[in-house]
Write a protein that binds this DNA or RNA. Structure first.
Ligand code: FES
Ligand code: FES
Lengths: 141, 141
DNA sequence: CCATACCTGACTAAATTGGTCAAGTATAGA
DNA sequence: TCTATACTTGACCAATTTAGTCAGGTATGG
């Protein structure tokens, strides 16, 4: 099981954004250069972050993005949800009554994977952007 | 991030094997039918489990596989390692001094992903096959 | 009016996944 | 000895996902 770049980049970019400025907008170009992430790809990611009210945008020269919430209220869960980085351990569909084996009952390891999923999600729920930037704020270069 | 079928099937099959019989060999055909996993695919998986001394094989009629260790000594970690189901959260290569951004220092989220990786691995290290079959042993049909 | 920077959608190469297929070899039981 | 069972090995492949690129837009401050 692995983390995809989309989720990794989203968190990276938001940490960068939060560290560098909390009032003035930060352009994706700057983030792209500092973190070495493709600008085009960042645009796709920020489009989703914006739809989920995690950031807001300011167009035009000197524009960019700003956090739309207090860093303490932005959990990794929220970020991952926004960019569709899902934690999926069970094979079966959650809504379905059927197990992944096509039978009426859940498979013999279903509960295990469910437990694992909760274990992982608890990590994401407890970690906020604020936790990640503590003592690491920087001033604009 | 998601669990792949290879890891899921490996655990499923071993739980099945351990539950159904601890002395007589269990054939992959039986496991395949009970758990609804492709037989050909199971063969690939068990070839790896055997190489890692988790199971041993008995050829011929009435043959099959048996656990090669006490279920208590088989942790999920061992199973996943055997079938190459890796937990990979960081992007950078662990040996390399370079960060994922190509720079000399680790990226700003490296430590976070490393912490996540440890969090997940601790789950796998602590869970044994024995934990999964407690009170669930069945007799051969 | 123009440079900056957000915005949107289409497209794609490469890797991974989740298998299938084919051709064996070893062994127990009839 | 013959045969059915079941392990063994390696090649192959279709579908999906990933991690982007590309080509256009649109809004705005100076
Ligand atoms: S994972 Fe849910 S039934 Fe198998
Ligand atoms: S994940 Fe290790 S340097 Fe970025």
């Amino acid at each position: 099981m692995k983390l995809t770049s989309k989720g990794r980049y989203a968190v990276m970019a938001l940490v960068d954004l939060a560290r560098f400025d909390s009032i003035n907008p930060v352009s994706l170009r700057d983030i792209s250069l500092r973190q070495n992430i493709s600008l085009d790809y960042l645009e796709q990611i920020f489009s989703k972050l914006k739809k989920n009210n995690i950031v807001k945008s300011i167009r035009g020269t000197q524009g960019g993005y700003i956090l739309n919430k207090n860093p303490n209220d932005i959990k990794l869960t929220n970020i991952f949800y926004a960019v569709d980085e899902k934690v999926k351990t069970v094979q079966c569909k959650k809504e379905s009554k059927k197990g992944c084996n096509g039978k009426a009952t859940k498979c013999i390891t279903h509960d295990l994977w469910d437990e694992l999923e909760n274990h992982i999600n608890s990590f994401f729920k407890n970690k906020s952007l604020e936790d990640l930037i503590k003592n690491k704020k920087e001033t604009r270069i």
